[in-house]
């Protein structure tokens, strides 16, 4: 009997489902960062607002990478529904703590997908994930570094203004 399934798609159902889940996670990240950007803007934290706007755009690019991959492999990518995006945040620092937690969550998710790919011997998708795993090193580093600046500078007096200005300078060289 002909194998109609593999003529149509190279993705196993389980892998397609978790990739669609990841599309949702990336879209969710993008929306959270956009909410953070708006909050920072409202608080007069210009550079942080810009920082999160850029992060939001990057997360959308991540989402589209997964989206295209699913379709290119013969699967069906699902346009994600995004719910439960906060509008208000506890504090300047809490925003960056949440950002780090979000990135750590993403890393964990991608690790899980890589694990599933290994188990079902889908090394093509496993290879595709490498870019994201590497990207997560930078994402976590930057968020963690900014949190450390809160400790170094302190929020008193002009501290918040100093921290905000410094946010844009944090980068990861990988060297």
């Amino acid at each position: 009997m002909k194998d109609l399934l593999r003529l149509k798609t190279s993705l196993k159902e389980e892998i397609e489902n978790i990739l669609n889940e990841q599309i949702k996670v990336e879209a969710h990240s993008s929306s959270i960062y956009l909410a953070m950007s708006s909050w920072c803007d409202d608080q007069g934290l210009d550079y942080s607002a810009q920082f999160f706007e850029k992060q939001a755009a990057e997360e959308r690019v991540h989402m589209m990478k997964f989206f295209k991959y699913v379709n290119d492999r013969g699967g069906r990518a699902i346009s994600p529904e995004i719910k439960n995006i906060p509008k208000d945040f506890e504090s300047f620092r809490a925003v960056f703590e949440m950002a780090l937690e979000q990135e750590m969550h993403v890393t964990q998710q991608i690790n899980n997908i890589a694990d599933k790919c290994m188990k079902s011997k889908d090394f093509v998708t496993f290879q595709f994930l490498q870019w994201f795993l590497e990207e997560q090193i930078e994402e976590e580093y930057v968020a963690r570094r900014i949190l450390e600046i809160f400790d170094v500078v302190g929020e008193e007096g002009t501290g918040r203004w100093e921290i905000d200005k410094h946010v844009q300078k944090v980068s990861y060289s990988g060297e």
Binding site: M1, D3, L4, L5, R6, E13
Partner: peptide, 10 residues
């Protein structure tokens, strides 16, 4: 059965 057929073919 569809999945089984794929596995068998593989």
């Amino acid at each position: 059965m569809i999945e089984l057929n794929s596995v068998i073919q593989e």
